[in-house]
């Protein structure tokens, strides 16, 4: 049996290790296990980027038709990752800052950082500045934007569907470099974006 790559119905190219049966078992040898975990993390992040997925839960290992089914199962060899195994991979991702428990103080579900919060901050800032330049009717400079304005603007956004906790992290990062201000408004919070400090 040759182990080969495979293209899923959603157009994602699975690496050949995904067709190796032992990939779906937690390895008792710590060195082997850390290699396998690295491969899993890379797979999860690239798949998340491919499908723009933000939330991964331990239950995704058990639920049929989960968003992650294409990587968490391999029907061709009749293998699937077990919840415990996935839970350990998630814990490693959190320890490497490649994911964060969301909501905090539990370990069943995470935000997956296929872009780091720092990278999201830059994406957000570049997009807002560009948007302000080309459509000052909508958002003249210094307009206070709601989170909804960012995640669901009339003309689409590279941050579409971004979960609010992740957006909040990005805004906090911009705030630290003086590029955003969070302001309390009537129905919650708003953000004002400021020009880059020279």
């Amino acid at each position: 049996m040759a182990l080969s790559t495979h293209t899923t119905p959603s157009g994602f190219l699975l690496p050949s290790i995904h067709s190796a049966p032992p990939f779906f078992t937690e390895q008792p040898n710590p060195t082997t296990q850390s290699t396998a975990t690295e491969q899993w993390i890379r797979l999860i992040l690239t798949y998340a980027r491919h499908k723009k997925l933000f939330n991964l839960r331990v239950e995704d290992a058990e639920i049929a038709e989960s968003d992650w089914e294409e990587i968490l199962r391999n029907e061709r060899i009749n293998r699937r990752i077990l919840p415990n195994h996935l839970s350990n991979i998630i814990a490693t991702m959190v320890s490497k800052n490649l994911a964060a428990y969301e909501p905090p103080k539990q370990a069943r579900s995470v935000l997956v950082f296929w872009r780091l919060p720092e990278e999201w901050a830059e994406v957000l800032y570049d997009w807002v500045r560009l948007y302000q330049l080309v459509s000052c009717f909508h958002w003249p400079l210094n307009t206070i934007l709601t989170f909804y304005d960012i995640t669901d603007p009339p003309s689409g956004s590279p941050l579409g569907n971004i979960p609010v906790p992740l957006l909040r992290r990005a805004i906090v990062i911009l705030g630290k470099t003086g590029r955003s201000q969070t302001i309390a408004i009537t129905d919650g919070e708003g953000v004002r974006f400021l020009p880059r400090a020279k």
Partner: peptide, 9 residues
Amino acid sequence: GMCWLDAQD
């Protein structure tokens, strides 16, 4: 570490 385990055989 010369082989991997498959517990779903």
